[in-house]
Write a protein that binds this DNA or RNA. Structure first.
Lengths: 120, 120
DNA sequence: TGACTATATGAGTATCTACTCATATAACGT
DNA sequence: ACGTTATATGAGTAGATACTCATATAGTCA
């Protein structure tokens, strides 16, 4: 069994055939970081550039740039140049459904833990 | 900015207050591995134990055990003992909605790439 | 052209992750 | 109790990730 690597699968675009599970895992890996989730929520209602998001979320410029790159590579964000800036917007609103369900599942899990505590 | 760590947040249950984004990221991180996605698909229609899943998915026993632990810790799977075995089932079917949307987004992104190639 | 702004990327680093092998634990049947 | 089966966990490792700082690139405007 070779180890699953997210970025290798990304950059290797050429070579390997990816399984359904790997394709899904790539999308989910791209979503699975609090700062990337914050970025998406910040872009929920509009278009923004790196220079607007950075101060809003208090993220270092180059770090933000790499987070944005990951989201674009997975097709979660779309970007285009406009003068000096690079604008970003969410490509597919269903991403927010994933985030909403994740929140529900997290909440439900927290409730289940409380129930276990109360039983004792 | 301190680095986001999945497992620290998991095991630290006691101490830190977690943001909404961290809670969502935890769920998504737990889902973001091809083998864990395969495990969930294998459990889609029923209850199974480690010893049934391992040969089916060709996963080494201890590796599978750790993957299952991650899914249980996040509340994605529920487990209970039955004699020697530990049975697992999916706690919340909405997990499959997340997987389905991820698949759709991945497919859509692949289609977009093909379009770009055809434009040129 | 030169100064300035916005973004991307190279290099270095601490930490994390998935994996394997070996061993421990727990529950069963005899 | 003893051997067997199912699962969990310790230790070690290769390689991946998020982050920072410094630098490169690219577009703007005087």
């Amino acid at each position: 069994m070779s180890r699953y690597s997210y970025s290798q699968l990304l950059t290797d675009g050429s070579a390997m055939k990816k399984t359904q599970e790997e394709l899904k895992a790539n999308i989910l890996t791209a979503l699975a970081h609090p700062n990337r989730i914050r970025i998406l929520e910040s872009l929920k209602n509009g278009v923004k550039c790196n220079c607007e998001i950075a101060p809003e979320l208090d993220l270092e410029q180059s770090n933000l740039s790499r987070h944005l790159k990951i989201l674009v590579q997975e097709g979660i964000l779309v970007s285009w140049k406009e003068g000096l800036r690079v604008n970003y917007k969410v490509a597919d609103k269903r991403i927010f459904d994933i985030l909403a369900i994740s929140g529900d599942v997290a909440r439900k899990q927290a409730e289940a833990r409380i129930e276990v505590l109360e039983e004792a």
